[in-house]
Computed example of a mutant assay.
Amino acid sequence: MTDVFAADFWSSIFNFSDYGRLLVLVQNSIIAGAILGIVGGLIGVFVMQRDMAFAVHGISELSFAGAAAALLFGANVVAGSLVGSLLAATIIGVLGARARDRNSIIGVLMPFGLGLGILFLALYPGRSGNRFGLLTGQILSVDIPQLGVLIAISIVVLITLLVIWRPLVFDSVDPDVAMARGVPARTLSIVFMILLGLMVAVSVQIIGALLVLALLVTPAAAALRVSSSPIVVPLLAMLFGFASAVGGVLLAIGGSLPISPYVTTISFLIYLGCRIVGRIRGHRLRRQLEPSARSAAAGVSA
């Protein structure tokens, strides 16, 4: 009985008997995962630098509420998700200039958005798979219109990020000095929150509202563990996001589970590996600096 249970368990997670045929059918999903991983990893660098990981979750809750409302009333789910995300992003960007204010606003928005979303889903009379997909993602059913929306939004986000890159980096790293130098911090905050809202909205459609942090926060957090270079960190974050999303899709094809567990597991393992590498490098650096520190101390005492 135990062997049968174990076989069924692993079969539900990894089953590659018809993998070649299934791979051809999910090309849109692979493209969507690649785009989402790359752009999500890039914008995630600024999320980490601006200490806004909590904001991602807050925006995702209202995005979920907007998508659930659209599902209930028969409207376009992507449009509903975008409305919810942009509403939350604008509120946080306008009212949450300081970290304390921002966190309190997010703490209010999160349960409100989640409660609305649950209410709309409870009233929805349709298939339970549609409701479950808003929470855990539906990347294996990405169609051409959804892919087109994802590509269009990603291009807008990338172009805008490139335009505001230098002042945004300045404001993210040292906001006080940036403000003293005349950088429009409030405008940048609102623009960045809108960009983040757009990415959260399309991410909710792909990976679900509950696990959007796996692509918009974890890759950048992992990259920051192994480097502090302003060039290397964004490149690593995009690489880690790409590996998590595309790897999750490729693994999910062979199983019967939603995409989310695969993406989040890969993303977590990458972060864990980067944390270990960062700690080893830190120990080596300290050992290299110890002789210099002892020599300096001996010179002072002499």
Rank of each mutant, 00 (worst) to 15 (best):
Pro175Thr: 01
Gln146Trp: 10
Leu121Trp: 05
Val163Ile: 15
Met48Asn: 05
Ser128Pro: 03
Leu114Tyr: 15
Phe16Ser: 11
Phe64Cys: 03
Leu119Gln: 05
Phe9Lys: 07
Arg21His: 11
Asn28His: 15
Gln146Met: 13
Val157Ala: 00
Leu289Phe: 09
Val183Ile: 00
Ile118Gly: 04
Pro111Lys: 12
Gly93Cys: 05
Val173Leu: 09
Leu95Trp: 12
Ile270Ser: 00
Leu121Cys: 03
Asp101Val: 12
Asp174Ser: 08
Ser189Gly: 12
Phe54Lys: 07
Gly115Arg: 11
Val45Met: 01
Leu236Lys: 01
Leu71Glu: 05
Ile91Asn: 01
Ser228Ala: 12
Arg279Cys: 05
Ile13Val: 15
Phe14Leu: 12
Thr218Ser: 08
Ile266Lys: 04
Ala222Asn: 09
Ala88Val: 01
Ile194Cys: 05
Pro230Gln: 00
Ala7Phe: 13
Ile38Thr: 07
Leu188Tyr: 02
Ala68Ser: 15
Ile280Gly: 05
Phe132Trp: 10
Val246His: 05
Val232Ser: 03
Phe132Val: 05
Asp8Lys: 13
Val169Leu: 06
Val277Ala: 10
Asp51Leu: 06
Ala178Trp: 01
Leu272Ser: 08
Leu195Glu: 01
Asp51Arg: 15
Thr90Ala: 09
Arg102Gln: 15
Arg98Leu: 08
Gly241Ser: 07
Met1Val: 04
Val83Lys: 07
Asp51Ala: 11
Ala99Asn: 13
Gly96Cys: 11
His283Ile: 15
Gly84Pro: 10
Ser81Phe: 01
Arg127Tyr: 08
Ile155His: 05
Gly113Ser: 02
Ile31Leu: 15
Leu250Val: 06
Leu123Arg: 06
Ala245Lys: 06
Thr265Ala: 06
Gly241Arg: 01
Leu36Val: 14
Ala53Asn: 14
Ala245Pro: 13
Phe240Tyr: 03
Asn130Thr: 07
Leu158Gly: 02
Leu121Phe: 05
Ala7Tyr: 13
Ala296Val: 11
Ala70Ser: 14
Gly107Ser: 10
Val94Pro: 10
Met110Arg: 09
Val77Cys: 10
Arg186Pro: 02
Ile151Arg: 00
Arg100Trp: 14
Val173Cys: 02
Leu114Asp: 08
Val156Arg: 03
Leu162Arg: 04
Ala122Phe: 10
Ser260Gln: 13
Val4Cys: 06
Ile31Phe: 12
Leu188Asn: 02
Ser128Cys: 00
Val26Met: 09
Gly74Arg: 13
Ala53Leu: 08
Phe192Gly: 04
Phe64His: 10
Val226Tyr: 02
Ile13Arg: 08
